[in-house]
Amino acid sequence: MPDSVLHVEDIHKSFGALKASDGISLDLYPGEIHALIGPNGAGKSTLIKQIAGGLKPDAGRVRFLGRDVTGLTTAQRAHAGLGRTFQISALAMQFTVLQNVVLGAVGQSGLVFRFFRNAMKDEALVSRAREALRRVGLAELENSITAELSHGQRRQLEVAVALTLSPKAFLMDEPMAGMGAEGSRVLTDFLQELKKEAPILLVEHDMDAVFALADRISVLVYGKIIATGSVDQIRADAQVREAYLGEEEEEAL
C-alpha cells in the first residue's frame, strides 16, 4: 500500500449524549475516489467538518500528507492543500462567476494583503481562474452573477474554485446534488479524470454515482464505520444491506 494522503485516526466527537463520531478511522490513498455513504444523521457532515477544520474532535487526529493537522484552522488546511466543496453551495452569490474563481486564485497565491493591484486585471490570477472554469465547463458563464446560476452550475463552480487551489486532496460534499442526469454524468467523467491529480473523499447520496465512481466505499452508521471495501464488497455486505441500503434500494443493486 502507498502512503495515505489523508489519514483519519480514531476520531471521537460528541454533542451531549449523541456520539456523532464514535471512533472513526479512514484513509485516502493517491489516485482513488473514496466514497463515504450513510443514512441521514449518520455523522457524515460532522466528520467532514472535522477533516476540513471548523470543528475540533474530542479525541483522535487527522493527518494530511504525513502532517498532523488536527490543530489547524480551515484556512491553514486549505493552504496545506485540502480542497473542499460544500453540500450547500458556499459561494459569494453577488460576485460574478469569474470573481468567485479569482477569489480562489487569490487564496492560492497567498497574496491577500495586496492593496493597490486590481485583482480582476491581474494576469496570473485571472488566467489561473479561467483555466479552472474551462475545466469544469463554465468558461462561457464567467460574467454571469453567481446567484443566477442553476444548482448544477453552482456545483461546477464550487469544483472550479477548489481547482484553483491545486489541492493535494479533494473533500467533496455531495457534488452531484441538484444536478440533472446530463450534468451528473459530465461531472462523473470529470471526477474520474481529476482523481489522477489528487484523490477525492466523496460524500454522496446518489447511489448510482457512488457505485460508478468509487474505488472504495466506507459506510457510516451512527458515528461508526461499519464497513470499508470495494463496490462489490459493499454490495455483498449483509450488515450494510441491513443497516443502510434497505429494501427499496436492493432492487437497484
Binding site: A52, G53, G54, T73, T74, A75, Q76, A78, H79, R84, F86, A90, L91, A92, M93, Q94, F95, Q99, N100, V102, L103, G104, V106, G107, Q108, S109, G110, L111, V112, F113, R114, F115, F116, R117, N118, A119, M120, D122, L125, V161, T164, L165
Partner: peptide, 24 residues
Amino acid sequence: KSPFGLALDGAHQQEERVQTVGIN
C-alpha cells in the same frame, strides 16, 4: 478592487468560502 478588497467583500457574503480558499 484589490485582492484584499475582493476577499473582504467575499467574506462579507460568504465567510466559509473565503476560509476554504486558505484566507484567514
